[in-house]
């Protein structure tokens, strides 16, 4: 850990073109973005705008075809090899043959931590996501919301400073979603992690983020970056305040502008 920490993620002129049978598809073009430590950045936009692709490029699950990107001052590949981030997918992707506890232990086994250290981290992260008491259950014995919380616990068990979340609550109903949003915020507040969060819900993006990156499709690009003026502490009812609604309106305008540009 150097004293002068560089940006956690920094991308310049980033582009990614997929070669498909129907010809090249430009998923990302000319993305310039810097994410500092401790930020909560949301990526929002309609489907096909490249927000998930951008997250996957940061995670080294896709290789960019243009521009440059660094994660923790390294290439994404080096960052992945040094286990710099935890990734939460759209679905929980828990292994059905492992108990919740063993699922959370999966990354720890691969890193090669001692049994004692594993048990300690499992206990801590299970408490963090409020799943204590469900350690011995199998994933298919839990509700969808609990499964997604378990997958967040699995990403946290790693203890990486960067958390990449790809529409983690997209498949959940609104009540569970509100609850998990609240828990995620308090978790972010306590752990001071950097979080990149992909969503297509405007209220979710505004409620969670310190910065909202608005994207638009064909080619996928960043059309607006909105700094949130909300304080770090956010009760759920902040969503009815004029300040919140003003930011939401700006995001909506940004999304609409991205669309009209294309028409």
């Amino acid at each position: 850990m150097s004293g002068q920490s560089p940006a956690v993620v920094s991308a310049s002129k980033l582009g990614l073109t997929f070669q498909t049978n129907d010809g090249p598809v430009q998923a990302l073009s000319n993305v310039d973005l810097t994410i500092g430590k401790g930020e909560f950045v949301s990526f929002i936009g309609p489907s096909g705008c490249g927000k998930t692709t951008l997250l996957r490029v940061i995670a080294d699950l896709e290789k960019p075809t243009a521009g440059a990107i660094s994660v923790n001052g390294m290439t994404p590949e080096q960052a992945r090899e040094s286990r710099a981030y935890g990734y939460v997918f759209q679905a929980a992707a828990l292994f059905p043959w492992r108990t919740i506890e063993r699922n959370v232990a999966l990354p720890l086994e691969i890193i090669g931590l001692s049994k004692a250290e594993q048990a300690d981290r499992i206990k801590r992260t299970m408490e963090l996501v409020n799943l204590s008491g469900f350690e011995k259950k199998y994933p298919w014995q839990l509700s969808g919301g609990m499964q997604q919380r378990a997958s967040i616990a699995r990403a946290l068990a790693f203890d990486a400073d960067l958390l990449l979340m790809d529409e983690p609550f997209g498949a959940l109903d609104e009540i569970v979603r509100d609850h998990l949003n609240e828990q995620l915020l308090s978790l972010w507040d306590r752990t001071n992690k950097t979080i990149c969060f992909v969503t297509h819900s405007i209220p979710e993006a505004v409620y969670l983020s310190t910065r909202i990156v608005v994207m638009s499709p064909r080619p996928g690009r960043v059309t607006d970056i909105i700094e949130s003026t909300l304080s770090r502490k956010r009760p759920l009812d902040i969503r009815e305040t004029p300040e919140f609604l003003a930011i939401a309106a700006r995001v909506r305008d940004g999304l609409r502008a991205g669309h009209s540009y294309e028409d």
């Binding site: 992945r80 286990r83 935890g86 992707a93 691969i110």
Partner: peptide
């Protein structure tokens, strides 16, 4: 195995055998 599960193992920088 699903591609999401395989991506997950990749994010852990898990090798072929693990």
């Amino acid at each position: 195995s699903g591609h999401m599960e395989r991506d997950l193992m990749r994010t852990y920088a898990s090798g072929y055998w693990p």
